[in-house]
Design a protein around this nucleic acid. Structure first.
Lengths: 367, 367
DNA sequence: TTGTGCTGAGAAAACGATTTCAGATAGATT
DNA sequence: AATCTATCTGAAATCGTTTTCTCAGCACAA
C-alpha cells in the first residue's frame, strides 16, 4: 500500500499531523498559508489517505454491500448498474457479491460485509427461507434492506416490485387480442416472489372475468423450463392448446419461443408470448418480447435512497443505553421514522411477441 | 457496526485479548480449554472481527478491485461472475466498480480502491489513452493488472484475448460456405483492442488468400452501429452487397440482423453474420449467432490467478530500502519472476447465423 | 497594565485488531 | 529436589487516521 502517511505529509509541509487532518476533513479552520503547504505536500507525495484507518476511527466507510443471486443475469446486472450509479452519486461505493443462488454463500457474504463494516447492505436473497439471516442481522449495525425477493421471517424493510399491475394489463391486453385460453409458465414453487407473480396473474385472470388458467407449467425461471414448456404445449391438441402464454421470467419466455419455433409453431401467429423483467435484451430478441416490465431503474434508485435513509436514521437515533420505559414514547422526527416496505408497480410493455389470437382451426395449417 | 469487540470476547471468556486473537488467527497455540471458552464467547456475543482494524494492522485486506466499463453488458457481467467466483475460491472478495465508459470515473475508482487498500486490482479500461493511470499506479502498492483492453503507456502486465485465431477461423468458415464478398462492421476507431480486432480480421483475410474487404462500416460496438450498418448494407445494389459480414461486437451483430430483417433480407439466407464475444445470448438469439468467442471463463480465472501471483511476488520481494545498484542483479526465484503479458486465443463457434452464400441473383426474389 | 475572547496549532487519546516480548506455569530431566 | 524446557498467557506497542483537549499568541476593551 502506498507507504506515505499523514505523518509524512505533515513532515514535508512542516506542520503537525492534526493540521494535515484538518485540511483533509475541513472541519476546523486552517490558515491560508499552511493550507497551501499541506495541499502541496499531498500532491508531491501522491498521498492517498488510508480508508481503513479512517473507517476505523470515524466508524463509517461510505461503502454499501449488494448481494445478488447471479450477476450474469441481465436483470440483476442492470439493477446493479443503477444501484452503483446512484450510490456513486451519493458518495458511496458498492461492494458487489454474487451468491450464485446459494444460501450458504449468501450467508458467508453477509458475514463478510458485516466484517468490512459497510454502512448498509441490500440483499436480493437466494435462500427460500432463513432465520439465520435475522440472527446475523441482529449482530450487525449496518442498515439492511431486502431487495426484490422477499425474505420470510426477515425483520427489516423490503423493497420490490408489485407484479399485479403489469399482470392485469397483460391479461387485459391478451383478451383484447381475442385470446381466451391463456396459459402460464411459472417460476420456482415455494419461492416467495415467484409465487407472488403467479398469484398476481391468477388474480388478474379473475379481475378480468376469466375463471381458471387452462394450462400451467411449473419450472424454475430458466431457459430450459421454457423449452420444456414449449415441448409440452406443442404436444397438446390444437383446440386445447393455449393461444397465449405468460411466462414468469424472461429467460423462460426465450426458451419457450425457441421450442415453439422448433415445433413449427410461430410467435405470435400461432401462440402469443408474454415474458417478465424487461432487460435490454427483450427488444433485441426476435420477435421482440412483450413483457411485464420490472421497474429496474426506479427500484435501484429507491433501494439506495432507502438504505441511505436508514443509515441517516440510525445515526440520528442511537439505540438507548438502557431499554426505554414502556410508556415513554420518544419523539420521532420525520427523518427517524421507521422505514417500511415499499412496492413499485410493474407495467406492460407491448412488443412483437403478442398478436391477435389465431382464428379457430387456423393452426391446423401445419397439421 | 456490531459493537462487540475482541475485548468483550476476552472478558466474557475470562482470558486476555491476545488469547482471543490467537484463537482467531490460529498462529500460536492455545490450550484446548481456553480455545473452547473463546469460541463459545464468540458465538454467544455474535462477535464479528472488524476487518478495518485487521487490515490496518496486517496491511492486507484480502480484497481485489475490479473496474469494468459497463456491468450491464453481458460480456463484462459474465466475466465479472467468473472473476468473483475464482477470487472467492481463493479467499478474496471483489469490489466491483462500474466506470460507465468514463475515463474520469475510472480514475476516481482507481483512487478509491487505492484508498481502500485493496491487495490487487483488475482494470478493463475505458480510457483510450492515459498517462494519469501510470502516475496513479506509482502511488499504489496494489498489484495492478490491465484486463481485456490494452492500456497504452501502462506499465504493468496485461491479460486479454488474441482475436486472430477466431478471426482466421471465421474467414475460413465463410470461404468454405462460398462467400467471397465479406464485409466488416468495426468498433471504435482508436480504441486499441477494437483496432486489434480489425487488424486481426484483415490479417485473416490475407492469410486466407483474399485481398481487401469490400465493405467496411465504422462504429462503436453498439446496437445502433449494427442497425445503421444494416441500413447501409441493404441500400447497396445486390451484386455489390457483401454476402457475409463480420461484426466486431455481439451487440452490433444483433443490431445488424434486426436491420437486415427490417429491410426484407434474411439471415443467413441472404446475408451471413458473424459476431464477437459469445455471451449466453448468442445461442438464445434467433437465428443463434455464429461468433468469434472470447475465452471468458479462462480469462476471468487467469486474471485472478495472475493478480494473486503478483501479490505473492510483491510480498516475497519487498522493494529495497535504497535503489539497487545498476550492476547488482538480484536473484529471482520462480515465484518472483516478473509477470508478463498473456494472450488467450479466441475461437469460432458456429451457429445458425451463417450459411451458404446465396447463388448470384437469388436475393432478387424480394425485388 | 491586566483580563477576556478568539484563532490556529500541536500533543495525545481513541478506533479494534495483531504481534512482540517477557513472564508464568506446567511437566520433564538429572 | 532443583533446574530446564516447552507451552501458554498477558501487557503493551503498532497500524494511520480523527478528534478531543490544551495552550500559545494576539487583539481589544476596561
Amino acid at each position: 500500500m502506498s507507504r506515505v502517511t499523514v505523518r509524512d505529509v505533515a513532515e514535508r509541509a512542516g506542520v503537525s499531523i492534526s493540521t494535515v487532518s484538518r485540511v483533509l476533513t475541513g472541519n476546523a479552520p486552517v490558515s491560508k498559508e499552511l493550507h497551501r503547504r499541506v495541499v502541496e505536500a499531498i500532491e508531491e507525495l501522491g498521498y492517498r489517505p488510508n480508508a481503513l484507518a479512517r473507517g476505523l476511527r470515524i466508524r463509517r466507510t461510505a461503502v454499501l454491500g449488494l448481494i445478488v443471486p447471479d450477476i450474469a443475469n441481465p436483470f440483476f446486472s442492470q439493477l446493479a448498474r443503477v444501484i452503483e450509479e446512484t450510490a456513486h452519486r451519493h458518495g458511496y461505493s458498492i461492494v458487489l457479491c454474487n451468491s450464485q443462488n446459494s444460501r450458504q454463500r449468501e450467508l458467508e457474504y453477509f458475514a463478510l460485509l458485516s466484517s468490512q463494516r459497510v454502512d448498509g447492505m441490500m440483499i436480493i436473497s437466494s435462500a427460500a427461507t432463513h432465520e439465520e439471516l435475522s440472527q446475523f442481522q441482529s449482530a450487525t449495525d449496518a442498515a439492511v434492506l431486502a431487495l426484490d425477493r422477499r425474505i420470510p421471517g426477515f425483520q427489516g424493510p423490503w423493497l420490490g416490485a408489485d407484479p399485479y399491475p403489469g399482470a392485469f394489463e397483460a391479461v387485459r391486453h391478451l383478451l383484447d387480442l381475442n385470446h381466451r385460453r391463456i396459459g402460464i409458465v411459472r417460476g420456482v414453487e415455494g419461492n416467495i416472489s415467484s409465487d407472488q407473480r403467479f398469484e398476481a396473474i391468477l388474480q388478474a385472470y379473475r379481475d378480468n372475468g376469466l375463471t381458471e388458467p387452462p394450462w400451467i407449467w411449473a419450472g424454475d425461471y430458466s431457459v430450459e423450463t421454457g423449452i420444456r414448456a414449449g415441448d409440452a404445449l406443442a404436444a397438446l391438441p390444437p383446440d386445447q392448446r393455449p393461444t397465449a402464454v405468460i411466462a414468469a421470467s424472461e429467460f423462460s419466455a426465450y426458451g419457450l419461443v425457441h421450442s415453439l419455433h422448433d415445433h413449427g409453431l410461430s410467435v405470435p401467429e400461432d401462440v402469443s408470448v408474454v415474458g417478465f423483467d424487461n432487460t435490454r435484451f427483450a427488444e433485441l430478441f426476435r420477435p421482440a418480447l412483450t413483457v411485464i416490465a420490472q421497474p429496474i431503474e426506479r427500484m435501484g434508485r429507491r433501494a439506495v435512497e432507502t438504505v441511505l435513509q436508514m443509515i441517516a436514521a440510525a445515526e440520528e437515533e442511537p439505540p438507548p443505553p438502557v431499554a426505554p420505559l414502556p410508556g415513554s414514547a420518544r419523539p420521532r422526527t420525520a427523518k427517524t421514522q421507521r422505514v417500511t416496505d415499499e412496492w413499485l408497480p410493474t407495467k406492460l410493455v407491448v412488443r412483437a411477441s403478442t398478436g391477435p389470437a389465431p382464428r379457430a382451426g387456423s393452426t391446423l395449417r401445419f397439421a
